[in-house]
Design a protein around this nucleic acid. Structure first.
Lengths: 201, 201
DNA sequence: TCATATACTACACACGCTGTGCACTTTAGC
DNA sequence: GCTAAAGTGCACAGCGTGTGTAGTATATGA
């Protein structure tokens, strides 16, 4: 992946921003697979050639977009209630609420990233980092439960972390929120029920 | 989707078979996104043009392959222990074992189908049928639990069916079996634990 | 065994997408 | 206002899907 130099120009920054939001909107509307570089450029009011002055490739655009969204949407703020919780069981509830709050907005991008990682090694590397980070969160939760003596058998910290991590998959989020039309709060409470029943003593 | 006539010729049937297995092998090895029509044809020892004499399009190849695999792998046999179970709770355990036994073999194809359905309406229609069928199974399980008086609150038949259906997603299977390297039997028992703890009284 | 329909080959082509090269014009910033 | 950066316009290579068409090999039934 060729990295593009940081822009010094003000117009350049605006264009870059326009390209990112154009890409994001198009992905939300049609999915990344159906979105071409030409369309992104057109919506941003710029030449396709100019798009390649900002992003070295389709994959590069995608990964930079993902990072940009994570910054914009304030991931840290959404996870704060989890780590500020008084005890592990409450934290687990908050974790479900965080997933219901945050992940639906990422569905489109996540699908795009997941698709890209299967053909592009750079995308795969980037996506693996993100998922490793999620797994860290899950392990931390499992450890907390264990430390509080609330981790139900037969779970170990390792297996609970793995399962918790698997259960936060976008298939689950998308299946319920999009395909089965669950309202986000119903998703939050029922996911919390699954977590509590499964992992807590 | 243009449908291709059933073959009358014996050679034609062999070629068709060779093409399907070639496609399946390549998908397992590299994923559908990285597999081209040329590669499928080459591995089957046939011209690309001949491939299009059997399958109208890439999507057509994919959907026919999916049906073919479902026939070959004997889905019915794998779900039999579920519906032969003496009670709903045992059935739920068997359901987890069925998922652990059957779905890992479908991961590659499922990824391909899921990818295709996001750009091709025909693929989407076919895939929706498959998933609707899975949802029927889940609802049947939920109804059985409810009938036996073993459905834990706050679940209703509808919400339990939806959640059960969401939890059988390929992201979960792939995440644990492939990414976290879980052996299938560990996956089966722990998934059964999740189901039991979550849904049963 | 021979005639005929069917399967397959070997080319060709149109079209869409990605990514790059290059000469040119516009714009930002000192 | 001058200079460097940003953007344009057009051309091109490469690869993928899907179709057309004329000719060759093969199966099958009479």
């Amino acid at each position: 992946m060729t990295t593009i130099d940081e822009p010094t120009n003000a117009r350049s920054r605006r264009t870059r921003q326009a390209l990112l939001t154009a890409a994001r909107d198009l992905i939300e509307e049609h999915g990344f697979g159906a979105v071409t570089m030409t369309q992104v450029a057109e919506r941003a009011g710029v030449t396709r050639r100019a798009l390649y002055l900002h992003f070295a490739s389709r994959t590069d655009l995608l990964t930079e977009l993902f990072d940009h969204v994570n910054d914009t949407e304030d991931l840290a703020a959404s996870t704060r209630p989890v780590w500020d919780a008084p005890d592990a069981v409450t934290a687990l509830d908050e974790w479900a609420r965080h997933l219901a709050r945050y992940h639906p907005r990422l569905i489109g991008l996540a699908r795009a990233a997941d698709h890209a990682r299967r053909s592009d090694p750079d995308a795969a590397a980037h996506w693996d980092l993100v998922r490793a980070d999620w797994h860290d969160h899950c392990r931390r939760l499992a450890q907390w439960l264990d430390h509080d003596g609330r981790l139900a058998p037969p779970w170990t910290v390792a297996t609970a972390a793995d399962m918790l991590w698997a259960l936060m998959s976008f298939d689950v989020v998308e299946g319920l929120i999009v395909d089965r039309d669950w309202p986000p709060d119903q998703f939050a409470t029922h996911l919390a029920t699954v977590f509590r029943a499964t992992f807590t003593l």
